[in-house]
Nucleic acid binder design. Structure first.
Length: 422
RNA sequence: GGAGAGAUGGCCGAGCGGUCGAAGGCGCACGCCUGGAAAGUGUGUAUACCCCACAAGGGUAUCAUGGGUUCGAAUCCCAUUCUCUCCGCCA
């Protein structure tokens, strides 16, 4: 959520930047400022009338104590009037604040200066590419065929017990999952991250905190009986660990890593690119999250980007890094790098990681602040990235490393799988 | 699921109708003491919003949340949420 004061002081810039995200704020911003003025005015009225009431109450108290019943009763009549006035102001204030908040919640984050304008994925900028695309034979198989050839992932079984988008991993396929998770976690630990195992369901407040609510309500599975949401990423519980906190500046950054299953309804995306492991309702992911000082968050973003690139290098996968354009970025992000891995049989780039700086957008929603030795608390910056999401990594590994003897496991992973051929 | 107890500041904990943003302790910060440290000692130590120059100063709100009673509520009443204990069930 943007800060109202910032909007007030930088109206023009805000409108222009939101435009890069394809959000037309020309009308909404003046309305917001107007509402804020009303809010201040009403606040003042309320405070003044409460001030008067408080004073009267004190006076009455003194009069009662000194036995001046009559005078006290006289004053009481005055308070009734004030009271209904206060009620009116306060009802009004609540209404205005609600309206303000509703609008603010719907405004996306401002993009960083380096974010290109654009509407679609094609407008993203490729900032880096490395690794050789393997030279496969003509009869190379897509990963779903490899999966059934070696009987390591069963999509039909998943269909039967749950539905499409819920694959069942078997035998070496299951082991490979476990290996990847451990591999990713261990690497993050080496990098100084602290491991967490968060709940897989979160409450509404957490959903609002990281920005999934109200923006993406329909994309999360909702457990209505207890009003909880299945997490679409560990970002949600992990970042919300810090909700409503004021931490010391010298304790920053907080570096957290968590493995979790992720659940996404993916409503509206049926039909396209959904074969095999390309798009699932449930998948595994290791996520890194950092809470950082505003002065250092972009440096941290680059570090995280370097870290993710290192993982892909270890896995010997050809990949590229994209700077997302305004239209392709998430609601809450100020700058996002996507990592895509080339899956050779499908001949497709698959997104395996998204690394973002949210600046103070999430922390403003969740009141995550830090304090310098001197001065008032300030909003911290939050960042996160996938490191990494498993299914598409598996897809690329299966496709790119297929040989007549079997699928080769990258060297770095062999200690984790216990086998080098699948 | 049944029965009971409870929710107060960073933490512990008092307060049970007015002088309470809240005693006391711990922690933390700064100072004194000390050769240095410990101990001791002094001072300070919530957040948001409003007025105002985002200064000084002033005002309002916040003792789980929301409502109510009252001139006045951390204190009384109701609802909700959460936590704990015991029983039941159970990985």
């Amino acid at each position: 959520m943007l800060q109202l004061n910032y909007i007030r002081e930088n109206t023009k810039e805000v409108i222009e930047k939101l435009n890069i995200k394809n959000f037309d704020a020309k009308e909404i911003i003046p309305k917001l400022i107007d509402l804020d003025n009303k809010r201040k005015e009403t606040q003042k009225q309320l405070d003044d009338s409460l001030f008067e009431s408080n004073n009267l109450a004190k006076e009455i108290g003194v009069l009662f104590k000194s036995g001046k019943q009559k005078e006290a009763n006289g004053l009481k009549e005055k308070t009734a009037q004030l009271k209904s006035l206060s009620k009116e102001y306060s009802d009004n204030l609540i209404l205005i604040e609600k309206e303000l908040n509703d609008i603010l919640l719907q405004i996306p984050n401002l993009p960083h200066n380096s974010v290109p304008k654009g509407k679609r994925a094609e407008d993203n900028i490729i900032v880096h590419q490395e690794g050789d695309v393997p030279d496969l034979t003509k009869d190379a198989l897509p990963h779903w065929d490899i999966a059934s050839k070696y009987d390591i992932i069963d999509f039909e079984l998943g269909n039967k017990i749950t539905g499409s988008g819920f694959p069942v991993y078997k035998a070496k396929g299951a082991k490979l999952q476990r290996a990847l998770i451990n591999f990713f976690l261990d690497n993050a630990l080496k990098e100084g991250y602290t491991e967490y195992q968060p709940p897989l369901m979160v409450n509404e407040d957490s959903g609002y905190g990281t920005g999934q609510l109200p923006d993406k309500e329909g994309q999360m599975y909702h457990v209505s009986i207890d009003n909880l949401y299945l997490i679409p990423t560990a970002e949600v519980p992990i970042t919300n660990l810090f909700r409503n906190m004021i931490v010391k500046a010298e304790e920053l950054p907080y570096k957290c890593v968590a493995y979790s299953s992720c659940f996404r309804r993916e409503a509206g995306s049926y039909g396209k690119d959904v074969r095999g492991l390309n798009r699932l309702h449930q998948f595994d992911k290791v996520e890194i999250v950092q809470i950082q000082h505003p002065d250092k968050s972009y440096q941290t973003l680059e570090e995280m980007r370097g870290y993710v690139a290192g993982l892909l290098r270890l896995l010997e996968l050809p990949f590229r890094t994209l700077r997302l354009c305004g239209g392709d970025m998430s609601f809450a992000s100020a700058l996002t790098y996507d990592f895509e891995v080339y899956s050779a049989a499908q001949q497709k780039w698959l997104e395996v990681s998204s690394v973002s700086n949210f600046e103070s957008f999430q922390s403003n929603r969740m009141k995550l602040r830090f304090r310098e030795k001197e001065g008032k608390p300030q909003l911290a910056h939050t960042l996160n990235g996938s490191a990494l999401a498993l299914p598409r990594i598996v897809a690329a590994l299966l496709e790119n490393n297929q040989t007549n003897e079997g699928v080769k496991i990258p060297k770095a992973l062999v200690p984790y799988t216990g086998f080098d051929l699948l």
